[in-house]
Nucleic acid binder design. Structure first.
Length: 575
DNA sequence: GCCGTTTTCGGCCCGACTGTTTTCAGTCG
């Protein structure tokens, strides 16, 4: 049983306990445990089998949870989980996906009306039976019906890049308000999460009503979800929820910190404040009733002797431990990048020619690029066989003679075949400057098979890196069932790199996997996988993800000049 | 159920808004 599966069971136990109105701190303990397991850099099962190691060495897992996880790994099920499932149909949990329905209402609906599915809930609302329940009313019934429309259609997270589009145009729209003194995005968007459920905007204004009216007038606004004196929520066409908060200037830093989150980061921060006799809320830091700080984020953190944290790190993972040790990493920045080692041309499925990609790379100030078109197995993309590939490389050789300031590398994205092995012969690969291997077919294969294919590819002496190592497409396709821990170990053993693909729908390795790869000592390559000139601008999405993984300039291969990348590959293979 | 420079018990972050309430519970972030 892998970490994701263990975490899913723990999360479901938390949900079920919540419906049973269990001690909320007990519920939180299961959620924290789930999160800890999900973010472990190695399989829990491995730790359990290793002498001298215990799961309790990780924050959030005590002896009780450690025992339950051990039982889960050994037997495939957890007695508490099974008991709860016998009491509450698992489908009741889906009721909580409807906005406005939390654990209490879901429990009441199930207990009083015997409702356990969304269809039953819809029917009961339409029949007017829900409004008769204590604590429910006509409004609630309407909210539930409206919320169910949503849950079925648009209630999914958007990619960061999609939200960025809305955020930029909405902020431009709002800035027309003369009373706005500050306007900043917060929430998971500011933290750079690869997908974002809603957009939080923070405003300092002498006239909150004017700002809210202006938001209501934004063309994409579809529904007004709520509006108070300081807070307003709307839903945009396409489903994105926007939450606007207006705060006084002396609270701006505290509010920005608070609304940026994450929730867990804030819990840790406030708990630290409490232990010092301070209280932190969105209005500031207080000792008793006395305002201590709050105008800037730096000020808020400084009251706890903490440094300002880059938003990407605020996930209550390592950042507090790093700060306590005075070792907060200096995160990689877009300007650190020197080259791009994964892109396509019209020779396969790209939309721009070799010459156009080269010109675009020069425009963007890149020092080197690798042209890595697909190999022949990817027939849909008109993949290259040895002959066509060598012809492209000859063209690159000619091109390089006339280029100044940019080196074009002879590369290929060689397919990892379904039955294992690579799509091109070793003698061909040996002529390349840069080889990335990736799999496009047989993505549904069982874990052992997929893992074996990737691990074997890493063992090939000509392969430099594995591209998009999990194959996930955010909101569209789950990652392959691959044992990433085994991939990390193989990459380390053979001195290879792993790619962080910057395409906003891919972004794999994800943030947690980046951090895990780093802990295994594996250098990361951040690539655009550009299929056109505009694709070269997607690097910033990959950088954001890398920052979330805590990566520095030194952790990323292509912040170095090409000569150093080559040397790094050589040196690592030698050891 | 977890955790510990208040250390094995007694805490566990904090507030806005809504709807159903007549003083507050539930939900959300």
């Amino acid at each position: 049983m892998n970490n994701a599966q263990i975490a899913a069971v723990l999360d479901e136990v938390a949900d079920l306990l919540e419906i049973q109105a269990a001690n909320p701190f007990r519920v939180r303990a299961y959620r924290n445990g789930a999160r800890t397991v999900r973010e472990l850099s190695e399989p829990a099962a491995t730790i359990l089998c290793t002498a001298g190691r215990k799961l309790t060495e990780f924050k959030g897992i005590g002896s009780d949870l450690a025992d339950k996880i051990a039982a889960l790994c050994q037997t495939g099920s957890m007695p508490l989980h099974q008991e709860l499932l016998a009491q509450i149909p698992v489908s009741v949990l889906t009721l909580m996906r409807v906005p406005g329905v939390g654990p209490k209402k879901a429990a009441a609906l199930n207990k009083e009306l015997g409702i356990s599915t969304l269809d039953e809930l819809r029917a009961a609302c339409q029949a007017g039976r829900v409004r008769k329940l204590k604590g429910f009313g006509e409004k609630t019934e309407q909210t539930i019906l409206a919320g169910m429309e949503l849950a079925g259609s648009v209630n999914q997270r958007l990619t960061w890049a999609e939200v960025d589009g809305f955020a930029q145009s909405l902020m431009t729209h709002l800035r027309a308000c003369p009373s706005i003194a500050e306007l900043e995005p917060a929430g998971s968007y500011r933290r750079g999460r690869d997908s974002v459920a809603d957009l939080d905007l923070l405003v300092v204004s002498s006239n909150p009503a004017e700002v809210m009216d202006r938001l209501a007038a934004f063309a994409a606004v579809e529904t007004l979800l709520g509006r108070g004196d300081t807070k307003m929520s709307v839903r945009l066409a396409g489903g994105l929820q926007v939450d606007l908060r207006v705060v006084p200037a002396e609270s701006f830093g505290a509010a920005w910190q608070y609304f940026t989150g994450s929730k867990d980061h804030n819990v840790e921060l406030r708990s630290r404040a409490k232990s010092r006799g301070l209280k932190i809320n969105e209005y500031g830091v207080f000792r008793g009733d006395q305002y201590v700080a709050g105008r800037t984020e730096e000020e808020v953190y400084a009251t706890l002797d903490l440094p300002w944290f880059p938003p990407e790190l605020r996930e209550a993972r390592q950042e507090f431990a790093w700060a306590d040790a005075g070792q907060l990493p200096k995160l990689i920045e877009t300007g650190d990048m020197q080259g791009d080692l994964h892109m396509h041309t019209t020779a396969t499925d790209g939309r721009a020619s070799l010459a156009e990609m080269v010109a675009a790379a020069q425009d963007r100030g890149l020092k080197y690029i690798a042209i890595t078109d697909h190999s022949k197995r990817v027939s849909m993309a008109n993949g290259l066989d040895a002959t066509r590939l060598r012809a492209q490389w000859a063209e690159i050789d000619r091109l390089n003679k006339s280029l100044r300031g940019l080196v074009v590398l002879k590369g290929v994205e060689v397919d990892i075949l379904e039955k294992g092995g690579l799509d091109l012969e070793d003698d061909v690969l040996a002529e390349a400057d840069w080889v990335v291997a990736s799999l496009h077919y047989g993505q549904q294969q069982p874990r052992e098979q997929i893992t074996r294919r990737i691990v074997d590819a890493l063992a090939n002496p000509h392969v430099c890196a594995i591209a998009h190592p999990t194959g996930r497409l955010i909101n569209r396709r789950k990652p392959y069932d691959v044992d990433l821990d085994a991939v990390f170990r193989a990459a380390r053993q053979h001195g290879k790199f792993l790619e962080l693909n910057s395409h906003p729908q891919r972004l794999d390795l994800d943030d947690v996997a980046c951090a895990a790869a780093k802990s295994h000592g594996i250098p990361i390559v951040i690539s655009t996988d550009a299929h056109g000139v505009e694709g070269l601008d997607k690097l910033r999405f990959g950088i954001l993800q890398a920052r979330r993984g805590g990566l520095t300039k030194a952790d990323v291969v292509n912040t170095r000049p090409w000569a150093q990348v080559k040397k790094l590959l050589r040196d690592r293979r030698a050891t």
